[in-house]
Design a binder for these strands. Sequence first.
DNA 1: TCCTCGATCAATGCATCCAATCAGTACTGT
DNA 2: ACAGTACTGATTGGATGCATTGATCGAGGA
Lengths: 222, 222
Amino acid sequence: MARVPESQRVRDALENAIVDGRYRPGERLDPSQLEQQFGCSRTPIREALQALERSGLVSIRPKQGTYVTELSLAELADRFEVMAELEGMAARLCARRIDRGQLEELHHALQECQLYEQKGDSDGYYYANAWFHGVIYDACGNEYLRQQAHSLRRVLQPYRRLQLRVPDRMRRSLAEHRVIAEAIETGETEAAENAGRDHVLVQVKEFSQLVRTWREVTAGNR
Amino acid sequence: MARVPESQRVRDALENAIVDGRYRPGERLDPSQLEQQFGCSRTPIREALQALERSGLVSIRPKQGTYVTELSLAELADRFEVMAELEGMAARLCARRIDRGQLEELHHALQECQLYEQKGDSDGYYYANAWFHGVIYDACGNEYLRQQAHSLRRVLQPYRRLQLRVPDRMRRSLAEHRVIAEAIETGETEAAENAGRDHVLVQVKEFSQLVRTWREVTAGNR
DNA sequence: TCCTCGATCAATGCATCCAATCAGTACTGT
DNA sequence: ACAGTACTGATTGGATGCATTGATCGAGGA
């Protein structure tokens, strides 16, 4: 039987809530409210929050409480830059190491992406997209890279949500996926790396653009 | 005044002890002994150990105690592979973004490396080497990358110790540093990336070689 | 109006206690 | 000799009490 410590349950629940956007960046996590919500004492809550802080999802500001991490544009850009590198690296390794079955799974994931893109279903696309990238991480043959990539991806997830609003993003994302899959299949390491990296970098650009626009728009409101 | 929580003191002390090799991989960290040593109760010890586990320096095996992480060769290889990528990335960004003062510091660090190499002082070289790489991380203009690189470097540190035994390692390391610094100075991003990456990769190769040799040697002893 | 001082209270760190659990081991019967 | 079992002690997760700290905010003064 899976012995699941309370602290881990809390950790997972909060992590999912943050990644899924049920808690927004900057939102306060009230310890006593969490105690009630999870029906436990401070100890497991505390441990969960500490764990989340280490993974970067929440920030504990001493004597002021714990908040869902709110990344500045610069901090976000730094993380995306590293994410791009990990993504490129994974694709490159993948192109060299992927096996038959995994390649097949990659194609399935790609088809799934295509399916939701055609339907214009961005939620569905989100999951297909996560699957596609997950296959690449799995097949890169580097377990540590897989973990790191997943972890960083989760941290960035709350901010990716905004990107869905970028017009035409899904269609272009799909096209990029095709390029990546193609390069992996044909074993072109260099091409795979560049495609994987650019796939992330392009999002940074669009994201910064989005933020800039949003700022210009909201600037007039104050 | 910076009030330093006990748990953090314990954490730092243990982390340094592990990184410096005063605790060896696989060694047990006895909680009750640590309580005595640091003169505090279980709570801060526990938190410190949990933090160290998250950063990968120790492994908590449920009901069996906490041990300094002992990485298998495969796990080690994965980490070095990622480290190489981060190192290459940092060097590439550095070549693009380093400023006058930082470039000067890089040269100082390089000279320091040269100094200790000539003296054949591997401990001194270790610190000069850390400085050299630290400058690159600082100057890469990506704070997140800086943190990640430092953190991964610490995890790998206990294993690097072995490398000092590789004959001629210091001399070649220095030569590699020169190539990296040169590429950064002249702004050749591509060259810097490759030099940075290879500088780590070469160590993996030598390390695996070392382990293999060591295994062959010790295999006869049992 | 703005600044300073002090009171208040939430947040925090730590110690300690309790209970559940599991690894390892000694023991038992076949 | 061996398989299965019961026991024991170490380890751990969790709860709670207590003292300390520092953020916050209002009163009083410049």
